[in-house]
Structure formats: structure tokens, C-alpha cells
Design a protein around this nucleic acid. Structure first.
Lengths: 339, 339
DNA sequence: TTTTTAAACGAAATCGTTTTCGAAATATTC
DNA sequence: GAATATTTCGAAAACGATTTCGTTTAAAAA
């Protein structure tokens, strides 16, 4: 009933716990014969080492904690996938927690992870997080932490992200190169950094190409992942502007809303209007017409972030002096029928 | 640098570790004054209990392990969401592992969770899992385990799932009631149980309504989540059968493939053909036309499974005799434009 | 004043490992 | 055969908490 312990094996063989432990770990000061015997008995009794005890003794848990705004999200579930796979590869388990975009929850989860003595933490900040006391507290305790995607610029730690501004710039530039002139932007909420950066990239692309920025062509979607926003503002846009010939959206989901409106109102894509999305949701290559989008390397981001974190964990163990890295992952454009 | 321990607090106040521990846990045999003092000092030093030590002593980790085929999946990420939320509510953390639909991985992950001494395990089986030695081994060790969604009928443990056959039956019956007569089925692979059950529900609905079952109207999609399958077989179906008036698909994603083919070939939905999907992916209410689908209570399933598991964990602690439950969650139909 | 009772604290064992260090047993060398 | 070197083993401390049980001190009852 109770799990087998070293003691059980030792008792069975009439030797000490010490020797059993050493035998299983291949120490050189235990004879060939006893090693064989111990290993055989361990297998016979189906012994599995008690990680909790090991963790207490070795002062590491081989566990990393992850905090994201929400797991039910195309981007984040892919990141988590990358995290879990890379972690497992290196012998780490991952505990996932959600902040639900609430600073309060983010703080609580962080405390939980601390209590659980995770070896390191990966975090993508909530939209509410504009002060970083809770993060800095972790850092001061010398607990490895790396931020990904939604980072805090002011925090002194490793970060991994994409260049939203550059990616947006490239997407809009592509539209301009294709001959589109009056390009609208369905942006995200005002505060989140990536929403801001994508907007800035849009603006800069216009300016660099001699197209005047027109504020009335920018529509603010309070929720990046609600297609109704796209639908609603598509209607509004077509009422307000006759000759808009392209839209760059903060997210593919918003683009789907526009697509829906166009389909229902017999507006042809890309003939009447072109659409360029962001994040390359998997539906974008399924809908008709297929929608062009910025490819965000989500899985890669998860892997890289984990690699970075585990390297920091190991550096800490070997007392290597800390150096924080900032990794910017390249994005690319998936050009499809909508442009 | 090093985390604060009870010892540190004790040393600071010149009292014993025992008293500190008791004070923090509110034991009655420590005076008001010392309690105050201890709590104050704990806060001052920013003490966080070392869960690893607590776990070793109390023989429980307040952690549950989850094994699913893949996290990047509409259904499973919702289940996980439910699991994490319910677990947190009851003070448990969750470790997520993926089997990638491989039995071999499933076994390995199970062993990992055991080593980590999780208090209980939630599992949705891989498509390869047709023998249950690894599961039964866990059960024999009296480790609480509940299966969800993809379960093993022969395993003696708690299960939580939907009635795929019944759900399919209802969907197809709805189509029949609406007057559709020649109804095709794009089914999933041959072996997975839910693929089989959905097929059986389809078949039974036809039979109960006096419609002859025609094997040539059933197309086998080897991958439930690849819309290309839907596209490919839609083409084939329209070549082979002139007067099919409805399709019931094993998954919404397959339905999207059909939708795409129809859009490209000017086949009107639902006038020329009706489409009924399964799982109610969030895109189904966005595409044009919106697709009818079977609603699977994924978030609820995660919550319920977790509740069940934690109840079993507590029963084990209080030595309450085990009773396994089988919960069948109700599904419903989301009727939209495609039917 | 003596005895009883209650209140407040702490020593020590325990959970299951790991690892240091010393001791015993055996083998080697002279 | 004595001295030394080499294997092989185990006692004990440590990781950080919890909990049992005993001890001390003070208060209440006799």
C-alpha cells in the first residue's frame, strides 16, 4: 500500500540505507555484487524514489512555474506546448497558473509558486500590470525568472519577445508595396504594449512611404480576441469611409469579424478591400478567402524561454554570475488570398 | 539570499522552532503574546513556508497531475482551464503533461507524476491506448485517478465523459426532423471510441427514422482536426453522390473543410447541403454561414473531473471506502445557419 | 502550606533522501 | 608476519517542517 522506500530495500537485503542509496546512484564505494542485488530488489519491489524527499535534500524541485493570462488562447496554448516539451526534455515538470489578466491574481500565483519552491518562473504579464514590485521581489530573492511576450520593459531580467512594431511595419509595408493606399488599422486596447507597438509600426510604415496618417482610419477594439469588434467597426468604417482599400488588424480574430461583414455585404476580398491580420491563427488558412497574417513563433518562444530559464537555473547552481538576455524572435509574413 | 525558515524566526525571538510552528498554525498551547510576536516576525522577515518540507512531513503534495494527448487543442485547453481553476480553488496546483497520442509517452508521464508524488491524476487516454496495465498499476497503488473524455471502459475507476453516441443521435435526428433525407457522415479514425460512438449514433438515428444506412455515404477522416480531410472528401462525395442533402461531421474542423469546398464551388449552405459539426469550436459561430454543432461541456468537464478527483483524495485520507463514479455530462445542440 | 490543575513551552522523532566521514574488512607490500 | 593501502560499508547529520509527549511554571483549590 505505502510506497516502497530505501529503507524497505535495505531491510530486505540486510544492509544499510546508505549503501542502498549509493548503489542506486552508482557510487564507486559499493561493490559490484551489492549493486546488482540492490538494483534487482529495487526493480522487484517496484521502487520509485520519493521526489519530495529528494527535493528537500537537494534543495531543488526540478519544476518550473508558468504564469500566463489565459490558457484558452491560440497563442498561449502554443507557448505552453513549447514550454512543456522543452522542460520535459531537460527533466523539468511544469506547473501552469493563470492570471486572468488580473494583477491581483498574478501576485497570488507568484506567491504560490514561491511556496512550492519552483526552480524558476516563466511569466507573461497581465494587461493590468504596470508596477513590478511583485516581480522584483522574486528577482531579489535570486529566483530565476524570465518574461515572455508581454514583458515589463523596466524590469531587470531576461526577456523573450517579438518586435511587434517591426512586424506591423513589415505587414503594412507589404500592403503599400502591393499598391494599397488608404489603409485602416483596427488596433487593440490603448494600454497593452504590443497593441501600442503594432499601432506604431502601422503609423511608421505609412510615414516612411509618404502616406499621411489619418486618425479617423484607426478603430480601437477593446478586446483583441472578440470578432464582434471587427464586425462592428467594419460596419462603421464602411459607413464613414468610402474608399478604404485595406485593413491591418491587431489580431486575426478581429480580421474574421471584418471578413464576416464583407461576406454578408457582398464586399469582395481582396478586390474591394484587402485584409492583413496578426498572429496567424490556424483558421486563417481555412477561411475563404485565406487571410494574410503575421506569423508569431509561439511554440518557439515557449522553447526558447524555457531554455533560457533553465540555463539561468544552472548558472545559479554553479554560481556563475548572472547576465540577463533579451531575445527578439523573428516574425514573418504569411501571404495569402486576402492581400 | 536563502529563504527564511522557522529556525530563523525562532532564533530571532529566542524561542524554539516548535513554538514558532505552533504559533503560525494557531495551536492553543501557545500564548497570545508569543503568537503575535511570531506572526509579526514572520511578516517582517517575509517568511514563506517551504512546501517541500511540509509535503514530506504531511505526505501530500497538494498537487494533481494531468495527462492529455495535446494541449494545443480547443477542447483540451478548455478542459485544462476548468481543471486549473477548480484545483486552485481547493488549494491544489496542477502539473500538465502531454502524451502526444503515444502510449509510450503516456506511460513515461505517468511514472513521472508518481515520482513527484502528486496526490491524484487526471487522464485522457491517447489514441494508442488499448491496454491498461500502466493505469491499473496506479490504481493498485491506491493513487486516486479519474479518467475524462477518452476513457478505458474496462478500467475500474471514476470516469467523466459525454455520451458521444447520444449526442450524435440527437444531431442527426435534428437533421432528419428538418426534412433532410440523404445524410452523409464524415467520421473519424476507426479505433478511437468517440469516433466509433459518434458513428453509431449517426447510424442509429437513421435506422430509428426508417432511413436505410448506406455505407458509401460514410467517409473516414484519419485526423479529426485536419480540415483538409473535410475538403478532400467533400470533393469526393459530390462526385460520387448527386443528391446528398446533409453532412454530419465528427468534428467542426472537418466541417470547415467542407465549407471551404462549398464556398469555392458555389454550393449553397444550407440550401444545397446542410452541415452539422461536433465540439462547437469557437470559429463555428464566426464563419459564414455559421455552423451548427454539438456543444461539449469542456470547461465543465475539467471542473467536474477535478472535483471528483479531489473528493477521492480526501476520501483516501479519511479512509472512507472507495466508490467509483461514472458521470455522463449532458451535451446540447447549437443550431445555426448551416442547418 | 500543600496539592491539583492549567497554561506555556521545548526536546525529539519523523517524513525519505543524500553525503560526509570514520571504521571495518580485505588485499597488498615489504 | 607486520605494516600499509584499498575496498566496502554504515552511522549520523542535514534538508524544513509537524506533532507527540513531557517538563516547567504559574494559578487555583484544598
Amino acid at each position: 500500500m505505502k510506497p516502497i522506500t530505501l529503507k524497505d530495500i535495505a531491510h530486505e537485503l540486510n544492509i544499510s540505507v546508505t549503501t542502498v542509496s549509493k548503489a542506486l546512484k552508482g557510487y564507486s564505494d559499493v561493490s559490484r555484487v551489492t549493486k546488482k542485488a540492490v538494483k534487482k530488489m529495487a526493480k522487484k519491489l517496484n521502487y520509485t524514489p520519493n521526489s519530495v524527499a529528494v527535493n528537500l535534500r537537494t534543495q531543488e524541485t526540478k519544476t518550473i512555474g508558468v504564469i500566463i493570462p489565459a490558457i484558452v488562447h491560440h497563442f498561449f496554448s502554443n507557448v505552453i506546448d513549447g514550454i512543456i516539451k522543452e522542460a520535459k526534455k531537460q527533466g523539468y515538470l511544469v506547473i501552469t497558473l493563470q492570471s486572468n489578466e488580473k494583477l491581483e491574481f498574478e501576485k497570488k500565483q507568484l506567491k504560490l509558486l514561491q511556496q512550492h519552491r519552483v526552480d524558476g518562473i516563466l511569466i507573461s504579464l497581465s494587461n493590468e500590470t504596470y508596477q513590478f514590485d511583485h516581480i522584483n521581489a522574486i528577482l531579489q530573492k535570486n529566483i530565476p525568472l524570465v518574461m515572455f511576450d508581454k514583458i515589463g520593459k523596466l524590469v531587470n531580467c531576461s526577456k523573450i519577445l517579438i518586435d511587434d512594431k517591426q512586424a506591423a511595419y513589415e505587414a503594412v509595408s507589404y500592403l503599400i508595396d502591393k499598391g494599397y493606399k488608404k489603409i485602416a488599422h483596427f488596433r487593440g486596447a490603448l494600454k497593452p504594449q504590443n497593441s501600442i507597438d503594432r499601432f506604431l509600426g502601422y503609423k511608421k510604415a505609412l510615414q516612411d512611404n509618404g502616406i499621411e496618417y489619418d486618425q479617423s482610419l484607426v478603430y480601437i477594439c477593446d478586446n483583441n480576441d472578440d470578432f464582434n469588434n471587427g464586425y462592428k467597426y467594419a460596419k462603421k468604417m464602411f459607413e464613414q469611409h468610402k474608399n478604404v482599400d485595406a485593413v491591418f488588424t491587431v489580431t486575426d480574430v478581429v480580421a474574421y469579424g471584418i471578413l464576416k461583414y464583407c461576406n454578408e455585404n457582398n464586399i469582395k476580398i481582396p478586390d474591394d478591400i484587402a485584409i492583413f491580420g496578426f498572429s496567424n491563427w490556424f483558421m486563417s488558412s481555412i477561411v475563404t478567402p485565406k487571410i494574410s497574417s503575421v506569423i508569431q513563433p509561439s511554440f518557439e518562444m515557449g522553447k526558447k524561454a524555457t531554455k533560457l530559464l533553465i540555463k539561468e537555473i544552472k548558472n545559479k547552481k554553479s554560481k556563475t554570475p548572472v547576465t540577463f538576455k533579451k531575445v527578439v524572435l523573428p516574425t514573418s509574413l504569411a501571404i495569402r488570398e486576402s492581400t
